[in-house]
């Protein structure tokens, strides 16, 4: 199945295109290639899941898009095209304009992403003051309305509360409300529910999905949790050691993974529907990203490794909507 090309270039259906992005950190102990040649795109109205374990580079991708990489980190090469505009070479002023208004971010820990010294109302108002030309009354009304949208009752009163007066789940609702205030086209959510309990997580995920759909926005959901991604995302991109190892439509990838790493990740999750005496495990650990082996990064943990894997790095090969970077990909139905 080939992907449909947009009929004309004036109304592209692709909102964000990241091409061959390389974000490296030049540290004293060597260059950390946190993101090394990552490509993906996000369509309008789509939720894209960016999955991987710690050290996979998934958060750095999110920060790179927003231009939030500080030295010793640097975007070495690649293209970030958002809504037809090149973000990689956009100046600081332009990026400040885009952040919050066109692209909003939701972080993992709502306590550190809210300012403890200002009321929730002040922090929400700031966003609208910077990015819209509403007057004070309109701003107040909009804040109340968005807080109510995210399920916070007595919104007008709660605007006067400080972040510490909210519980963890409520704080994350506030962060989502702030993200949605200026009606962004893209929301980057970095582990938005990892710090929350499972019943609260279910509430927040449902809320985020509804907010994204209602506003016609797109979302990049950065997470380590395949189960969360499988319930939220339309497409999924799997990262390992800073490289894309597999991507495609979520259900398809989870039912028929091509890359042994994706397969391993899926099998590592205990599944109540098919309980086994032993979990399938991926042997070993993620290699030191400063000393990656020659060839495929996954070679030392892979059950299918061959001599080719130790010599040359597998390129990302696209077939239809799917793509994988493996010399010996799994065929349909193959388990190992």
């Amino acid at each position: 199945m080939a992907e449909a090309k947009p009929a004309n270039a004036a109304a592209p259906e692709t909102l964000l295109r990241v091409e061959d992005l390389r974000t490296w950190f030049h540290t004293f102990s060597g260059t950390v290639k946190a993101v090394d040649g990552v490509s993906f795109s996000v369509k309008r109205g789509e939720i894209m899941g960016l999955v991987g374990e710690s050290g996979g580079g998934k958060s750095v991708v999110g920060f790179s898009i927003l231009g939030l990489i500080d030295p010793p980190g640097k975007i070495e090469s690649g293209a970030i095209e958002f809504n037809g505009e090149n973000l990689k070479d956009a100046g600081d002023a332009r990026l400040r304009d885009i952040r919050g208004r066109d692209i909003a971010m939701v972080f993992q820990d709502p306590m550190t992403s809210l300012n403890p010294l200002h009321t929730v109302g002040e922090q929400m108002d700031e966003m609208l003051r910077l990015h819209t030309d509403m007057d004070a009354g309109q701003r107040q009304a909009r804040c109340v309305q968005v807080l109510e949208d995210v399920g916070i009752s007595r919104a007008a009163d709660r605007l006067k509360s400080y972040p510490h007066q909210f519980s963890g789940g409520m704080r994350q609702r506030v962060v989502i409300a702030i993200a949605m205030l200026a009606q962004p086209k893209l929301v980057i959510a970095d582990e938005p529910t990892t710090a929350l309990d499972v019943t609260i997580q279910a509430q927040i995920l449902k809320l985020m999905r509804r907010q994204i759909r209602d506003n016609g926005a797109s979302m990049i959901l950065v997470t380590h949790d395949l189960a969360v991604v499988s319930e939220m995302a339309d497409h999924i991109t799997v990262l390992y050691c800073g490289k894309v190892v597999e991507r495609g439509p979520t259900d398809d990838v989870i039912r028929r993974p091509s890359h042994p790493y994706t397969r391993g990740l899926i099998d590592s999750i205990p599944n109540p529907a098919h309980r086994m005496a032993r979990l399938k495990q991926i042997p070993g650990a993620v290699p030191d990203i400063r000393k990656l082996p020659k060839g495929c990064n996954f070679q030392d943990r892979c059950p299918r490794v061959g001599t080719l894997c130790r010599e040359s790095e597998p390129p990302l090969v696209a077939t239809g909507a799917r793509a994988h970077a493996c010399h010996f990909p799994l065929k349909e139905g193959e388990t190992e």
């Binding site: 499972v198 997580q201 279910a202 949790d225 189960a227 969360v228 499988s230 999750i269 599944n271 529907a273």
Partner: peptide
Amino acid sequence: SAAPSIEK
């Protein structure tokens, strides 16, 4: 029912 799962 709240626990997310890859099993649809």
